[in-house]
């Protein structure tokens, strides 16, 4: 997997407030970036700017390789069983073997449970499985550990390490510490306007 993600001179404005400015960084294949900072400092906004979902107030984002996003929004049909709700994305992503991701994240027994009955952590694991099955080089993770128990946290850390090991890129926005190999931390407080 070859990929690259570069941000140059980014600034983000939400409403009347300038959240951060003059933020530049580049991520090459096989490395991870941890976006750190207090609540409301603009971590989620930065992830959405990198994903191309939010226009930056200034600056540009360049990317080589497709991107996958995990954020606090589930984007799964609440009334469908989990397996069917995820199947929609498997078809879009052309994923032929979704089972491995479900095993890794221990989702097998939940496949017949309607999405609305899942717990916070189970929902988070479902979105991570969707990311795995997307098979894309650039991972954008917004608070991926929210609601996960210790065992699941360890699994996610392993998955991110494996992803970077095989040449992928991971950008993780989190207020929690995450054990990642070869990780660079960007503290958004340093770029606050």
């Amino acid at each position: 997997m070859q990929a690259r993600l570069a941000a140059s001179d980014l600034a983000c404005r939400r409403g009347e407030r300038l959240l951060f400015r003059a933020l530049s960084f580049e991520v090459e294949s096989g490395s991870a970036v941890h976006i750190a900072g207090a609540n409301g400092i603009g971590k989620s906004s930065l992830i959405r700017i990198l994903a191309g979902l939010l226009r930056p107030f200034a600056g540009t984002v360049e990317n080589d390789g497709t991107m996958g996003l995990v954020d606090e929004r589930l984007a799964l049909d609440q009334n469908l069983p989990l397996g069917k709700a995820l199947a929609f994305y498997e078809k879009l992503d052309g994923c032929l073997d979704p089972g491995r991701a479900f095993d890794l994240l221990h989702l097998g027994p939940l496949m017949d449970v309607p999405v609305r009955y899942l717990s916070t952590g189970q929902k988070k694991r479902a979105t991570l499985a969707r990311l795995l099955n997307r098979n894309c080089p650039i991972w954008l993770l917004d608070e991926p550990l929210n609601g996960l128990d210790a065992q699941a946290v360890a699994i996610v850390e392993t998955l991110v390490a494996q992803h970077c090991g095989s040449g992928g890129i991971a950008v993780v926005a989190s207020h929690q510490e995450m054990a990642l190999p070869d990780v660079r931390t960007i503290d958004l407080a340093e770029y606050a306007a």
């Binding site: 191309g52 979902l53 497709t66 991107m67 954020d71 994305y89 879009l92």
Partner: peptide, 16 residues
């Protein structure tokens, strides 16, 4: 419903 759930975000990332 889909706007709130972020479905259109996930679709946009998939080139839809």
């Amino acid at each position: 419903g889909d706007l709130e759930a972020g479905v259109f975000d996930q679709l946009a990332l998939r080139g839809v």
